[in-house]
Computed example of a mutant assay.
Amino acid sequence: MEDIAAPPVPVDPTAQAAPQAPAEPEFISETLYIQNLNEKIKIDVLKTSLRGLFKSYGEVLDVVAHDNLRMRGQAFVSFADPETAKKAMKEVKGFPLYSKPMQISFARTRSDAVVKKLDPENYDKHKAAREEHKKATRYTNPLKRKFRAKRMAAEMDGAGAAPVSKRPNVQMPDEYLPPNKILFLQNLPESVSKDQLMALFSQYPNLYEVRLIPTKKDIAFVEYMDEGSATVAKDALHNYKLDGENKIKITFARK
């Protein structure tokens, strides 16, 4: 006996599809929250590097970073408008600043600098609310308690440290020197020419001069008009293989 197919279910032509919930608008902010920063870099150097890196996208209102245990490896970069912040995040996300790829998201609250510029009438109110929140969470936030305990332990461990005057005079490694508009290049191929270096470093704005050392061909100095421009070039070209084999080492020149 043949199977008889079930008749198709009639469709009401007047019926309408169930309405779908509208998609939530994308959250964007004027301030970027940056994580996974190199904790070994001094805070003033880190802030200068971040400002130099992001200022090519628009006006940077503020860069906030702290060296306390809770905030180490993190920073906030504020722009004058959210669209600029969005473009900067899209293009810089994952950039290896000091050899660590940056993790970037939008900050959930407005920074002081943003409120002061865009909503000055409510600045005092905004700042007072932030201070109240800070006080309210100071002793209840478990992460803050944890970091506070670590800090106290570190201070106790350091209580018996030798006086500063008796500590050995250790020269700061090249990698941690403060920003300078002059870059120091090492490990260059001995066949490198001034024109090659000019072509390489002129990709970045405000190049001023390239100086080779006749008696030592594997090093050179590259000078920019300002520290921010030098920082961007340094971060982009450090470990670049000029001859396809050897990586160029680029640091700030000692002042």
Rank of each mutant, 00 (worst) to 15 (best):
P205N: 02
N206S: 06
A162T: 11
L185Q: 05
S191P: 03
F147R: 00
N169W: 14
K194S: 07
V170Q: 11
S191V: 02
L183R: 07
M156P: 00
D174L: 08
P205I: 00
Y176G: 04
N187A: 09
Q196K: 03
F147N: 06
K166P: 06
K194L: 08
L183S: 02
P173Q: 02
Q186Y: 08
Q171A: 15
L185A: 10
G160H: 09
R148F: 04
P189N: 01
S165R: 12
A161M: 11
R148E: 09
D195N: 14
S165H: 13
P163L: 01
Y176T: 09
Y208T: 11
R167A: 09
P178D: 01
R167I: 10
N180C: 04
L188H: 01
P168S: 06
K181A: 02
D157S: 13
F201R: 01
S191A: 12
Y208H: 15
S193I: 06
E175I: 03
V192M: 00
K150S: 05
F201I: 06
A154V: 04
A199F: 09
Q203R: 13
N187Y: 06
Q171N: 13
A153G: 10
L197Y: 02
I182Q: 10
P168R: 13
D157F: 08
Y176K: 09
P173D: 05
F147M: 06
N180E: 02
R151Y: 09
Q171I: 15
A162V: 08
M172W: 06
V164A: 15
M156I: 14
P173H: 08
K181E: 05
R151C: 09
K194H: 11
V192L: 07
R151L: 07
A154E: 15
M198Q: 14
